[in-house]
Deep mutational scan, measured.
Amino acid sequence: QLNEKPLPEGWEMRFTVDGIPYFVDHNRRTTTYIDPRTGKSALDNGPQIAYVRD
């Protein structure tokens, strides 16, 4: 279940091809599976993935 609260300024939620949510921090140009609103991860110790700018 996804959090309904808005993401912090400069953050975006995207999904992997497998449908796993991850979070893009455009301020720091990093990505993470940890939801910045809750501190909880969509994966157990998930790796960071490459930042992609559209």
Rank of each mutant, 00 (worst) to 15 (best):
Q48V: 09
D35C: 04
G39E: 13
N3I: 11
W11H: 03
T32M: 01
T38A: 13
T38C: 12
I20T: 13
A42F: 11
L43S: 14
R37M: 03
F15N: 09
Q48W: 02
D18L: 04
L43Y: 11
P8T: 01
W11M: 07
D54P: 02
Y22D: 00
R29H: 05
Y51M: 13
G10N: 07
I34G: 05
S41C: 08
T38D: 07
S41L: 06
G10K: 08
I34V: 12
E9F: 07
R37P: 01
L7W: 02
R53A: 13
R37A: 05
D35S: 01
V24M: 10
K5D: 12
R28P: 01
T30W: 13
P8D: 05
R14H: 07
V24C: 06
Q48L: 04
T32V: 00
P8W: 01
T38Y: 05
T31S: 07
M13S: 11
W11K: 04
T16D: 08
R28E: 07
G46R: 11
N27Q: 08
R29S: 11
D25R: 00
P8N: 05
Y33M: 05
E9K: 13
Q1Y: 15
G39A: 13
T30R: 05
P47I: 03
P6H: 10
K40R: 12
M13G: 09
M13W: 02
T30Q: 13
T32E: 00
F15G: 07
N45Q: 12
H26L: 05
I49N: 12
L2W: 03
R29P: 04
Q1V: 05
L2E: 08
G10H: 01
Y33N: 05
E12Q: 08
E9Q: 05
E4I: 08
F23Q: 00
V17S: 10
F15P: 03
R37D: 03
Y33S: 04
D35M: 01
R28N: 14
K5P: 06
W11Q: 03
M13Y: 06
P21N: 06
R37N: 09
N3M: 05
N27D: 14
G19Y: 14
T38N: 13
Q48S: 13
Y33P: 02
E4N: 07
I20Y: 06
G46Y: 07
K40P: 11
D25V: 00
T31G: 02
S41M: 12
T30A: 13
I49Y: 04
T31E: 04
G46A: 08
T32G: 03
D44W: 08
T30V: 15
A42P: 12
V24W: 06
L43R: 11
E4T: 10
I49H: 14
F15Y: 08
E12N: 05
G46K: 13
K40Q: 12
P36V: 01
P36Y: 00
T31C: 08
E12K: 03
N45W: 05
G39H: 15
P36D: 00
M13C: 07
I34P: 00
D25P: 00
V17Q: 10
Q1H: 09
R53K: 09
K5N: 09
A50Q: 12
E12I: 03
R29M: 12
Y22T: 02
P36H: 00
S41G: 13
V17R: 11
A42D: 11
G10L: 03
D18Q: 07
A50C: 07
T31R: 02
F23R: 00
D18G: 08
L7E: 02
R28Y: 08
V24I: 15
Q48M: 04
Y51V: 09
R28M: 09
T16W: 02
V24A: 04
G19V: 00
G46N: 08
D44A: 05
S41Y: 07
R37G: 03
D44N: 06
L7S: 01
P8S: 04
K40T: 15
E12H: 02
P36A: 00
G19D: 14
Y33W: 04
L2C: 04
T30M: 15
I49A: 15
L43D: 15
K5R: 11
R14G: 06
T31F: 02
D54Y: 00
R29L: 08
T30N: 02
V24L: 15
D44E: 13
D25M: 02
I49E: 15
T38W: 05
K40H: 12
I20F: 06
M13L: 10
Q1D: 12
L7D: 01
N45F: 07
L43V: 14
R29Q: 06
E12L: 02
G46H: 11
I34H: 07
D25G: 02
K5I: 12
T16Y: 02
D44Q: 10
T16M: 03
L43T: 11
D18N: 03
S41P: 13
E4V: 06
I20C: 11
G10I: 00
Y33Q: 04
R14F: 09
I34W: 06
R14W: 04
N27I: 08
P6G: 14
E4Q: 05
T32P: 00
H26P: 14
P47Y: 03
L2D: 09
D18T: 10
T16V: 02
P6I: 12
M13D: 01
T30P: 00
R29K: 10
T31P: 02
I20L: 09
Y51T: 15
Q48N: 12
K40L: 11
A50K: 15
V17H: 14
Y22I: 02
E4G: 05
E12Y: 02
Y22H: 07
Y22S: 01
A50L: 06
D44Y: 06
G39L: 09
W11Y: 07
G39M: 09
R28K: 14
V17M: 13
T31W: 02
I34R: 13
P47M: 07
P8I: 01
D44C: 07
S41V: 12
L2I: 14
M13A: 12
G19I: 03
T32A: 01
Q48P: 11
